[in-house]
Design a protein around this nucleic acid. Structure first.
Lengths: 251, 251
DNA sequence: CCGATTTTGTTCTCACGTTCACAAGCTCCT
DNA sequence: AGGAGCTTGTGAACGTGAGAACAAAATCGG
C-alpha cells in the first residue's frame, strides 16, 4: 500500500476516523446496491437484504457500516436513501472529481465513451495523447488534446485523478509527469508496476493478471483427480539437480 | 470466494498442494517481472532484484515462491528462465485457454483488439453479441458472431473462460447462459454482482469502484487539517433531495 | 579442505480481516 | 403499558497474510 500510516502501538488504535481498507473497497458496492434498491422504489432494507444485493454476508455488511456510524434502526433496518447519501459522502462522490485520461488507444477510447464514466462523481476534463495524429480527434463531445498541455490542464481544472491507458512503455514517464503536475491519485491500466512517491495513491487494473488467476483455478479444476504430471522441464541448464517438484512443499 | 475448500481443523493444514489466494494473485506479477528481466538478457536474479521489479518486498516474494517449491539456489538466486517456466506452469499458462468475449460495445471492442490479449496463454475464439447490427462486423481478424451460437462454440472449442463486457442489464442472463454452456471461469466487467453456482469462479473488474476508492483517499488528503464537518443532513425523511450519486447501471 | 560471504527457505510474531453470537434497542400488538 | 419479535451494533474467537529474523545451503578464495 502506498498510504502512509502513522501507527503508535498504544491502544488498538481505533479508527482515528479511519476506515479499514477492506471496508473502503466494499463501500462502492454497497452504494451501487442501494441505488438499485432505490430505483426499485424500496425505501427500507435490512442488513440481510442489502448483503444479498451486494453479494456479501450480513455480518460483514453490518460491521462495515458500523465504521461509518449508526445509520440503521434496530428492529427495522436501514433507510435506503439516507444510507445511500451517507456512504456517498463518506466515499466523497457527493462532489465531482476532475479526471484526465492519458493514452487514447483502444482502451482509452472505450473509457472516454463510457457513459457517465460508470458513476457520477467523476468528470472527465481531458483526453490526452502524445501522438499528433490523434490530437484533435473528437470522441463524444470531447477532443483529444496534446499531452504537453497536461500541466496547464491539471492546474486549471484542479485535476486530482489521472487514468493511464498507455502501453507499458511510456507508462512510468506519464505517471511521473502526472505526479509532477499535481495529480495525487492514479488508476493504471498499463501492465507495469509504477512507482510513485509517498502521498500518491495508485490502483491497478490488469486484464491479463485477472485472466491468469482464473487460469490457475481452472487448471486445478481440470486436474482434480488426475493432476497432469510434471511435464518435461525445458532443458535445465545452469542450475543443479532439480528439486522434486511434487514434494517440495509442506511436510 | 467461490472456491470450495475442504479444510479440516487438525494441523496447520499445510498446502495440500494448495497455494494461498494472496500468493496466487501475485504470481502473474512475478511472471511479468521475470519476462522483463529475461528480455533484458538477465539470466539470474536474487529475491531482492525480483522483488524490486515486481513491486513487493523480498521476504514476501521468497515466501510466495516457497509455496511452489525450492526453485532458487542459496547464495546465488533464481535462474530467470527456469523460474519463469515454473511459475507459468503453476499458473497454467503453458497451455492455451480458449476465451469468448460477450458484449462487443466499446470495451469489448477494445479487448478484442488488445494485441496478444495481454499475455500468451489465452486465445480468443469468439466475439459474441446479441445485436444483429453488430453480428458480422470484423474486428481485427475476427468476426462478431451471434450470441445464440454460444453453446455450439463453447463445446467445439472447449471454452472454459468467458469475458462479460455487456451493460449491467443483460449481464446475469449472459452469465447464466455461459455457465449452462459449460464455462467455469468468468471475468465480469459489467457493474453488477453476478451470482454463479459453486464450482464456477468469477472475478470482477470495475472501473467505477476503483475510482471511488481513489476518491475516498483523495478526499482524506484534501481534508487533512480541516475535515469538512458533517454537512447538513439532508432532511432525513422520506426520499430526500440528494444529488443522484452512484448508479453504475449505465447503458 | 575450511572459513567467509551470500542468499534462500522457513519459523515466529503481529496485524488485519472475517465470522459468530448476543445484548441493546426499536416497533407492534394485545 | 408491557411483552413478543425483529434487527442492529459490537465484543470476542478464529483464520489468513505480512514482515522480521535466522538457520541452512551454496559459492568462492586462500
Amino acid at each position: 500500500m502506498t498510504r502512509a500510516s502513522s501507527r503508535r502501538p498504544g491502544p488498538p488504535t481505533r479508527t482515528e476516523r479511519g476506515i479499514p481498507e477492506a471496508t473502503v473497497a466494499r463501500l462502492p458496492v454497497y452504494l451501487r446496491a442501494l441505488t438499485a434498491l432505490s430505483d426499485n422504489g424500496i425505501a427500507t432494507a435490512s442488513s440481510e437484504d442489502l448483503a444479498t444485493a451486494a453479494g456479501v454476508n450480513s455480518a460483514k455488511l453490518r460491521k462495515d457500516l458500523s465504521y461509518l456510524g449508526s445509520y440503521g434502526t434496530r428492529g427495522v433496518g436501514y433507510d435506503v436513501e439516507y444510507l445511500r447519501y451517507q456512504i456517498a459522502r463518506e466515499i466523497g462522490v457527493t462532489q465531482d472529481w476532475a479526471v484526465v485520461i492519458v493514452g487514447i488507444g483502444n482502451l482509452g477510447h472505450a473509457l472516454a465513451n463510457y457513459s457517465g464514466f460508470g458513476t457520477r462523481g467523476f468528470r472527465i476534463v481531458a483526453l490526452l495523447d502524445a501522438d499528433p495524429d490523434l490530437v484533435g480527434e473528437r470522441i463524444g463531445d470531447m477532443e483529444v488534446r496534446d499531452f504537453a498541455q497536461l500541466e496547464e490542464i491539471v492546474e486549471t481544472d484542479r485535476v486530482s485523478i489521472g487514468v493511464i491507458t498507455t502501453p507499458a512503455g511510456p507508462a512510468q514517464e506519464v505517471c511521473d509527469r502526472l505526479v509532477a503536475a499535481g495529480v495525487t491519485s492514479i488508476l493504471n491500466f498499463a501492465p507495469v508496476v509504477l512507482s510513485v512517491p509517498d502521498g500518491v495513491d495508485i490502483r491497478k487494473v490488469d486484464l491479463s493478471i485477472e485472466l491468469q488467476i482464473l487460469a490457475y483455478h481452472e487448471q486445478r479444476k481440470s486436474g482434480e483427480a488426475a493432476l497432469p504430471q510434471v511435464p518435461e522441464l525445458p532443458a535445465m541448464n545452469g542450475l543443479t539437480d532439480l528439486p522434486s517438484v511434487g514434494g517440495g512443499v509442506g511436510a
